[in-house]
């Protein structure tokens, strides 16, 4: 739909400033969410950083010079043309480990974040919409309990029992231990939205409860959900690294956490192999920085008064 300023006046004469009966504000169609996010410079930087990581992870076999588990190189070699960042004590290529490691982090971030967001969404929405009932009392209590239990010790305990520690087990455990904060925020949000007049108005339009929750209320929560997802994914990535550092990582593959664990266990520091220690933590920090930057853009979405007075 296009409106020219001249047409925007309901002119009762030929002057452009004739008696206006009604006029619509000169704002065009509202900004799309991606336009809002993209309007923040930090968010743009974040999107670029995360995209680079995704590309590297997807095309790891093409990017990496070697197989990360190939231990046929000279141990403790320094950086060279063949081993860009040197080798480990048991003769593996650090650069290749680093590149393949991105896969685990992104995988855990994506699915751990997704699963945690879904759990928090379901519990938060049900609890918020049922506010004041026994259902809400129970769900709120569960949420509050889950919130006070320290996450990392619980994750460690849960993972420690299993013999096989695949990446999916880690994703699952991280998700079921880290949804509580999100659920509480969503409950609070839905309570404020639920009491808004447009929800009552929807009831008077003959809408069903499911339609009210998913078609009327949900679209107003998208920014909160997006922010929660980015936050949960960031947390999951950190938690995976923490687990791996304790030797509880996926034993079948390489992640940045397991690299740090190996580096510490093999005494990389005492032997002066600082690259082995320094690089995995650094790439992890850059990824998390990228994700925090994206969240700055997402915050613009949930902070409408930053855009409303346009």
């Amino acid at each position: 739909m296009t409106t020219t300023p001249a047409k925007d006046f309901m002119a009762e004469g030929d002057s452009a400033q004739a008696l206006t009966l009604e006029q619509v504000s000169d704002a065009g169609r509202p900004d799309r969410w991606w336009e809002v996010v993209w309007s923040s410079r930090k968010a743009r930087v974040g999107v670029v950083i995360v995209s680079v990581y995704v590309i590297v992870a997807v095309f790891a076999p093409l990017v990496a010079p070697h197989d990360p588990l190939d231990s046929t190189f000279t141990p403790l070699a320094g950086a060279s043309g063949d081993n860009w960042l040197g080798t480990t004590t048991d003769g593996r290529d650090i650069a290749s480990q680093l590149i393949y490691g991105s896969r685990i982090s992104l995988l855990v971030g994506l699915f751990g974040g997704l699963l945690a967001t879904i759990i928090s969404l379901v519990i938060g929405m049900v609890s918020g919409y049922a506010e004041g009932t026994i259902v809400d009392d129970i769900l709120s209590f569960v949420t509050n309990v889950a919130l006070v239990i320290p996450a990392l010790p619980l994750i460690i305990t849960l993972v420690a029992y299993s013999e096989v520690r695949g990446v999916w087990l880690i994703v699952f455990v991280i998700a079921i231990t880290s949804w509580a904060g999100g659920a509480r925020a969503k409950r609070a949000q839905i309570i404020t939205l639920r009491n808004r007049d447009f929800v009552t108005a929807a009831k008077f339009s003959g809408e069903s409860t499911t339609r009210i929750i998913f078609r009327e209320i949900m679209p107003n929560m998208s920014s909160l959900v997006a922010a929660a997802f980015v936050g949960a994914a960031t947390g999951a990535i950190g938690a995976e690294a923490g687990l791996a550092v304790l030797g509880l990582g996926d034993s079948q593959s390489v992640s940045w956490g397991t690299m740090l664990y190996q580096a510490n266990a093999q005494g990389a520091i005492t032997q002066g192999l600082w690259l082995w220690v320094f690089v995995p933590g650094l790439v992890l920090a850059i990824l998390i920085t990228g994700m925090s930057f994206i969240n700055f853009g997402v915050d613009l979405l949930s902070n409408p008064h930053l855009r409303e007075d346009a």
Binding site: V245, L260, A285, I286
Partner: peptide
């Protein structure tokens, strides 16, 4: 703060160990 917040405690520990310890 935003930057430091992205660092992993274990990694910081190893770096401190490397610099101030060894």
């Amino acid at each position: 703060s935003t930057f430091l917040g992205t660092l992993q405690p274990f990694w910081i520990a190893l770096l401190l160990l490397y610099v101030f310890g060894y």
